[in-house]
Design a protein around this nucleic acid. Structure first.
Lengths: 109, 109
DNA sequence: TATACATATGAACACATGTACATGCGTTTG
DNA sequence: CAAACGCATGTACATGTGTTCATATGTATA
């Protein structure tokens, strides 16, 4: 342990978000933190596509896609509507769009 | 494979970001996708703190902290300046602040 | 209604990731 | 200059995560 004491430290504690919020936020970002899921989201940025479309566009297996789509659904980043045999996916709301574009912005410093 | 063919699919391919960009973006979000790192970033939101401050504020071991701080440093989310024995950490730039707050915004739908 | 089709899901496995423990390195101080 | 201090880092290990393979579920069609 250290001898140094920072008087601001206590003040910092009281400004931290709750444990629940921090966990939720980390889990939220975790969903974006995967190459396959990022590509799925970008593919849906302007289009509504069914699973088979996505499989072709992204060159992924149908199974891997379905698993990832489930994660994206559960986290409310995409939604799907069934039309007969097909299931069309799209981004859930504009928030997702904004988060993606802001991420890109950050990469180009 | 599917019989259904969507004429938009080809068009979608040409609008996808490059593989490099997608990987970078995923890696970028991956850094935010951890409870410990989120808490570190929030602790640094308004203050500049040394490792020992962070250990006290966040109730983490010094080792775990140093490992996570390295990841945050390598991804340019935090920077540090050495003052004698102490190493003071702070957020690297405003972008980080904005990304965190936008994430919080999203949680409250 | 049997079959093909589109998608979803369960299980298993390989790989990534975060932490604790031990120790090293740079700085200061007695 | 030796000891204490603050922090960094290597290793090992437990746990988490994404993919593949196999199979199930739901829908249309012959």
């Amino acid at each position: 342990m250290s001898d140094y004491i920072n008087p601001m430290a206590e003040n910092t504690i009281s400004h931290l978000p709750s444990e629940d919020i921090s966990i939720e936020l980390a889990d939220f970002y975790k969903v974006f933190g995967d190459y396959a899921r990022i590509r799925i989201l970008f593919a849906l940025l302007n289009n509504e596509l069914c699973v088979n479309d996505l499989a072709n566009v992204l060159n992924m297996s149908q199974s891997a896609l379905s698993h990832q789509l489930r994660i994206l659904r559960q986290n409310r980043l995409v939604k799907n509507k069934r039309e007969g045999k097909l299931s069309f996916y799209s981004l859930d709301d504009d928030h997702v769009y904004r988060i993606l574009t802001q991420g890109l912005e950050h990469l180009s410093h």
